[in-house]
Design a protein around this nucleic acid. Structure first.
Length: 438
RNA sequence: GGAGAGAUGGCCGAGUGGUCGAAGGCGCUCCCCUGCUAAGGGAGUAUGGGGUUUAUAGCCUCAUCGAGGGUUCGAAUCCCUCUCUCUCCGCCA
């Protein structure tokens, strides 16, 4: 959420910046609502002040044993007028809030301007992709060839965009998670967090997934009620689309002390996304699933440190790929490709030989005060006054996609897959997946 | 799911219709006093919004005692609904 004060005083400039990300701010309706709001709010508060004063004087008069009937008739219609004004004020403020909640964050000045992913800017590469002297397979062929990856069964159990992993592939998936958590807690000083997978709508609103992106999420109703009317009114949960939501919302409605900062959390969770808008994309394989695991990094920092923290956060995610010896590149997302809440985002893209391209495996964003403002997440600054925090998040990494990268980059001519050295201790010393492992 | 109890400022805790945004204590901040063993005295110490303003200074003002609604000139206090916490029972990993 943007600061309403900034919209009141600097609207033209804000609109210009928002236009960079193809968002057109509803200037006319905002201005007219603001004018209404100001008039109604001033009027309402005048009435409230009058009511308070009169009520006080009644109290005093009664204490003295004086007659108050005259004063009472004087304020007979005050209550009705006030109630009416308060209702109007609430309506206007709700409408304003509705507008504000759907406005994306302002991109940082260092973000390249562009309209889609082709305008993203590469800033570095690590390792050259390996060259193969045999016909390479994609991760689906490899996994199914080994008998360890089973989409057919998953479809029977749930439907499209789910998977079943078995044996040492499932083990490798678990090993990856373990390795990532260990790296971030031991090398990068993150505190491990275990968090709910079902969350309420306030949490989703806090990080910016609601109200605008409800279609991308899965809602869960207690008791599995099929009565749609009951569903709408009953309290319900959402499956988390990313651990960013529960972890970041831990500081919702809190005032931290400056010496608590920075907070650094790492959490491993499954993530659930309906991806309503992306049917037809990546229909094959593990790349785009309704359920996938992710190790997420979240930092809650002092506003002056957030860009420094972003660089560190990216390097923490990169460290995983470096240790796994997987080639990748780091991209700065352009204004048109950034997520709703982000002021600046780096994507890390891993090399996938079968696709002959780099694919996103981590997205690291500085949301500045955008989420903190929605969440009322603050800290007490040096002067003792409350200030909004800055929040950052990044994948470190998406586990399923990392698995894909390993299968494809570490594949051998005979259909087996070597296990990256760093993971072997997590795999009971197994050095490769082949026809003999189960 | 059943029965009961509760929710007040950073914490503890008073307050059952009227100068209550809220006594008292603890903690914290600043000042004073005292050169001697965790002493004493004083002051301050919630958050958010609006108006005014160059100003996130000052001044004026509104709201908030779990949340929402109601009664009333006036609600922390009365009524209703909900949420959460605790205790006991049931069920359960």
């Amino acid at each position: 959420m943007l600061e309403i004060h900034q919209l009141r005083t600097d609207l033209e400039n804000v609109c210009k910046i928002l236009a960079k990300r193809d968002f057109s701010f509803p200037v006319a309706s905002f201005n007219s609502l603001e004018a209404d709001r100001k008039a109604i709010q001033t009027y309402t508060q005048e009435l409230q002040a009058k009511r308070n004063a009169v009520s006080k004087s009644i109290g005093i008069a009664k204490n003295k044993g004086e007659d108050v009937t005259v004063i009472l008739t004087e304020v007979a219609d005050l209550g009705d007028k006030l109630k009416q004004a308060e209702v109007q004020l609430e309506q206007v403020q709700n409408k304003l809030q509705q507008i504000l909640l759907e406005v994306p964050n302002l991109p940082h000045e260092s973000v390249p301007v562009g309209s889609n992913e082709t305008d993203n800017v590469e800033i570095r590469r690590w390792r050259k992709p390996r060259s193969f002297d045999f016909e390479i397979k994609d991760h689906v062929c490899i996994g199914e060839g080994l008998g360890l990856l089973d989409f057919e069964t998953a479809t029977k159990l749930s439907g499209a965009r789910f998977n079943v992993m078995k044996g040492e592939l499932a083990h490798l998936h678990r090993a990856l998670t373990q390795f990532m958590l260990d790296t971030h807690t031991q090398m990068h000083d993150y505190t491990e967090a275990y968090v709910p997978y079902l969350i309420n709508s306030e949490s989703l609103q806090g990080t910016g997934q609601l109200p605008k992106f409800e279609d991308d999420s899965f809602a869960v109703y207690p008791g599995g009620s099929s009565d749609s009317k009951k569903q709408e009114n009953s309290p319900h949960y959402y499956l988390i689309p990313t651990a960013e939501v529960p972890v970041t919302n831990m500081v919702r409605d809190k005032i931290l002390s400056a010496k608590q900062l920075p907070l650094k959390f790492v959490a491993h969770t499954p993530c659930f996304r309906s991806e309503a808008g992306s049917y037809g994309r990546d229909t094959r394989g593990l790349i785009r699933q309704h359920q996938f695991d992710k190790v997420e990094l979240v930092q809650i920092v002092h506003p002056q440190q957030s860009y420094e923290a972003l660089e560190q956060l990216v390097s923490h995610a990169e460290k995983i790929l470096q240790q796994l010896e997987l080639p990748y590149r780091v991209m700065t997302l352009c204004t048109g490709d950034m997520g709703f809440s982000a002021a600046k985002t780096y994507d890390i893209e891993v090399w996938l030989p079968a696709q002959n391209t780099y694919r996103e495996i981590s997205s690291c964003s500085n949301c500045e005060a955008f989420q903190a403002r929605r969440m009322h997440a603050r800290f007490r600054n040096e002067k003792g006054s409350t200030t909004l925090l800055h929040t950052l998040n990044g994948s470190g990494l998406a586990v399923g996609r990392t698995l894909v990268a390993i299968l494809e980059n570490y594949q051998n001519a005979d259909g087996s897959v070597s296990i990256p050295t760093i993971l072997q201790p997590y795999m009971n010393g197994i050095k490769q997946l082949d026809q003999n492992v189960k």
